[in-house]
Amino acid sequence: MQEKTVRFYVNSVETEVTVSVNDRLLDVLRNQLGLTGTKEGCGIGECGACTVILDGKAVNSCLVPAASLDGHEVVTIEGLSEGGTLHPLQDAFARHGAVQCGFCTPGFIMSAKALLDENSHPERTEIQEAIAGNLCRCTGYEQIIDAIEDAAGKAEP
């Protein structure tokens, strides 16, 4: 099996790993780096549970070849809270009941973070569009959108 060594940033930490050409970014995060916050829901880029931020853009980590990662930057859900303090998005999700089983939550939060990084005060319709690639079987989405609106409201204008 062919292997490649890749050096890339994960949550601001420079990381070097040897990956198989069969690995996806999702596999490297979960199996080699122990970052199991990112989930595999469908493995085909439709549910968004595996969403991470790659070079500033929300992507499905199940669709990114690990061998392509050299020189890139990845942010996962583990990279959001600093020193035990919840990120405003995480805090808002908890307060708004936007988390039930929680399986979709890391993916939603990463999509929301990518949105707010580009557009700090989105309209509700813009939030809906930005999270259209994240599926939730539990909540019915309204609480999730409320939480993102709340977190956006607390951002600097």
Partner: peptide, 9 residues
């Protein structure tokens, strides 16, 4: 096309 995560790639 699809969703944002897909369109970003």
């Amino acid at each position: 096309v699809a969703n944002r995560q897909v369109r970003n790639r």
